[in-house]
Lab assay of single mutants.
Amino acid sequence: EETYEVDGEEQLKKVEKMLRDRNLDVEVEIHNGKFVIRAK
């Protein structure tokens, strides 16, 4: 499992696309105004 923490939606979209391109399962949560992306 990998976890990424990003600020802002633009970064979120980039990271999310990169992970989905690797066929990973992606979950996004918001913690303290930051996006936390978990990939399995």
Rank of each mutant, 00 (worst) to 15 (best):
E1N: 10
E1H: 11
E2G: 07
E2M: 12
E2A: 08
E2D: 06
E2N: 06
E2T: 11
E2Y: 13
T3Y: 14
T3I: 15
T3H: 09
T3W: 15
T3V: 15
Y4K: 01
Y4P: 00
E5P: 03
E5W: 14
E5A: 07
E5T: 13
E5S: 08
E5H: 10
V6T: 05
V6M: 05
V6R: 03
V6W: 05
V6F: 06
V6H: 03
V6I: 10
V6P: 02
D7F: 14
D7K: 07
D7E: 13
D7S: 11
D7P: 05
G8R: 06
G8D: 15
G8H: 08
G8Q: 06
G8S: 15
G8F: 09
E9F: 13
E9L: 14
E9V: 12
E9T: 09
E10I: 07
E10D: 11
E10H: 06
Q11N: 10
Q11L: 12
Q11T: 09
Q11A: 12
L12H: 03
L12M: 13
L12W: 08
L12A: 14
L12G: 03
L12S: 06
K13F: 11
K13T: 06
K13I: 10
K14P: 02
K14T: 10
V15R: 02
V15N: 01
V15F: 10
V15G: 00
V15E: 01
V15D: 01
E16T: 15
E16Y: 15
E16A: 14
E16C: 15
E16P: 01
K17F: 03
K17Y: 01
K17W: 03
K17T: 06
K17G: 04
K17M: 10
K17P: 00
M18D: 00
M18H: 04
M18C: 15
M18I: 07
M18Q: 05
M18V: 03
M18T: 04
L19A: 02
L19E: 00
L19R: 00
R20E: 03
R20H: 06
R20M: 08
R20G: 03
R20A: 06
D21A: 13
D21R: 11
D21I: 09
R22M: 10
R22N: 05
R22G: 03
R22Y: 06
N23F: 12
N23T: 03
L24F: 13
L24A: 04
L24P: 03
L24D: 01
L24M: 14
D25N: 11
D25R: 12
D25A: 11
D25V: 14
V26T: 05
V26G: 02
V26M: 10
E27S: 13
E27A: 09
E27Q: 12
E27Y: 13
E27H: 12
V28L: 04
V28F: 05
V28T: 03
V28D: 00
E29P: 01
E29V: 12
I30W: 14
I30S: 09
I30F: 14
I30H: 08
H31R: 14
H31G: 05
H31I: 15
H31D: 05
N32L: 05
N32P: 02
N32S: 03
N32M: 06
N32W: 02
N32R: 04
G33T: 00
G33W: 03
G33M: 02
G33S: 01
K34D: 02
K34A: 05
K34P: 01
K34H: 10
F35E: 00
F35D: 00
F35K: 00
F35H: 02
F35S: 02
F35G: 00
V36Y: 12
V36G: 00
V36T: 06
V36M: 08
V36L: 13
V36P: 02
V36A: 02
V36D: 03
I37T: 02
I37D: 01
I37Q: 03
I37M: 01
I37F: 04
R38H: 06
R38Q: 02
R38M: 04
R38L: 04
R38P: 00
A39D: 00
A39L: 11
A39N: 03
A39W: 13
K40E: 01
K40S: 10
K40Y: 12
K40V: 12
K40A: 05
K40R: 13
K40F: 12
K40G: 04
